[in-house]
Design a protein around this nucleic acid. Structure first.
Lengths: 230, 230
DNA sequence: CGCAGTTTTGATCCCCTTCAAGTTGGGTGG
DNA sequence: CCACCCAACTTGAAGGGGATCAAAACTGCG
């Protein structure tokens, strides 16, 4: 949403919409599978994760949502959610009633476009995650690159360092890897020298080397010009 | 696109749009990664597949397109393709110039909705594929269930049997599994008794059993009422 | 009939899982 | 301020699913 290309006038118009603010505490669902969202959601603060639960009970994250990300676009077509959205940290959420949605999309052309844009990026990330199922270490590196860029875009990276407020088990559920193996891959990455991975944060020293290692190319995120992340 | 819910009048209006018909022969790209699609595509006949190529050269399908499926919705937002689309068989394609797209989406509200609906289904399939990365045999079974339902919806299933015009290697590239292992899983499924898998076709005997085995639930495909598949 | 693409089979290796235990660290209450 | 506790992280050993390499058999087609 906070994307270049929309006239300032329209950005203001979006801000003036009747958003309702709500906070969700860690480990609670923001949106549950099977329900029909009655609002469009916008994450203001905190991290959330889209997930499904498998037949045997294991959880699979299919995407992380950072501040500025949307969810519940399903409201556009009045379709049930096919996955749940969990607050990975305490979150601050803005809601826009679905009833407003149609009207807004009509009157603000660039709003409709922004929704499409957001959805296409989400889809691009899903595709990347599918392609990354080659080896766990590179997948992990690639995920951290993705998060680094996305955090950078919203100005949350300082000196290459950013907050990673999720557990290794969560990361494992995003890579389809056990917590044990996730931990081993984390340790390998630490030894690589490209980055530091501590409790709750990541600091990248050698962006070039890291990108090369996991073949990361941020273009799929369609971010246009990414601001400097220093 | 051929979905319930749109008034017959509007369906006719869509059919009257200036579609251009074009045929693409097997193993040729319909749309290539990095390009900016100038049209919206609709598959009329044949099968196509979305794919990316990995760092080390292997191919990964991220979805199959059957007759009635759309591609190139990227044209809506003038964004470059982040994946390619390959004709898996000889295909017949209908194209709608992107220049028409904005206008049509405005004048036919249900057309815009149909695009959203199609995209959300595509996304649901992507998520399912991500979740299925547990064991190859169930993944294969689940994929065949998906294809069975989708073929059924477009009336291409007879007596539980439908055409599967792709190779085991292609299927492997969709499951992230080698051709050798794909073959072994195919053989296991044959021995299961739920289905017959021959060259170029699949015939399902025991839908219930198969569904139960791979925990397939067609609801994520958001198909509304599926016509009988007999 | 011969060739090329596909399917099949066999043997060996390795990434990741599983199970099980230990360690660290932050938060809470006495 | 320390003792405790729970969540997160870490480590070890053994087993299995799938990869890899290599070759054979089958299919359809020109």
């Amino acid at each position: 949403m906070r994307r270049a290309g929309a006239p300032a006038r329209e950005v203001a118009a979006v801000a003036d919409l009747p958003w309702a603010i709500r906070s969700v505490s860690r480990n609670r669902d923001i949106l549950s599978i099977g329900s029909r969202p009655t609002s469009l959601f916008l994450v203001l603060e905190g991290w959330a994760g889209r997930y499904n639960v498998r037949r045997e009970g294991s959880r699979r994250f299919t995407g992380f949502m950072l501040p500025g990300d949307l969810c519940g676009i399903h409201a556009v077509t009045k379709v049930d959610m096919d996955h749940s959205v969990l607050a990975l940290t305490n979150c601050l959420i803005a809601e826009l009633p679905a009833t407003q949605l149609d009207r807004v999309a009509q009157s603000l052309p660039s709003f409709a476009k922004a929704l499409w844009h957001a959805k296409l990026i989400e889809e691009a990330i899903l595709r990347k995650w599918l392609c990354n199922s080659e080896d766990a270490q590179r997948s992990l590196a690639h995920l951290l690159c993705e998060l680094h860029v996305r955090m950078s875009v919203i100005g949350q990276v300082n000196q290459g360092s950013f907050a990673l407020p999720i557990t290794q088990a969560d990361i494992g559920d995003a890579l389809s890897v056990t917590p044990v193996h996730t931990n081993r891959m984390v340790q390998k990455l630490r030894r690589s020298g490209w980055m530091e991975i501590g409790r709750g944060f990541v600091k990248i020293f050698d962006v070039e080397g890291l990108y090369r290692y996991c073949a990361f190319n941020p273009s799929y995120l369609h971010l246009g010009m990414v601001k400097g992340s220093s």
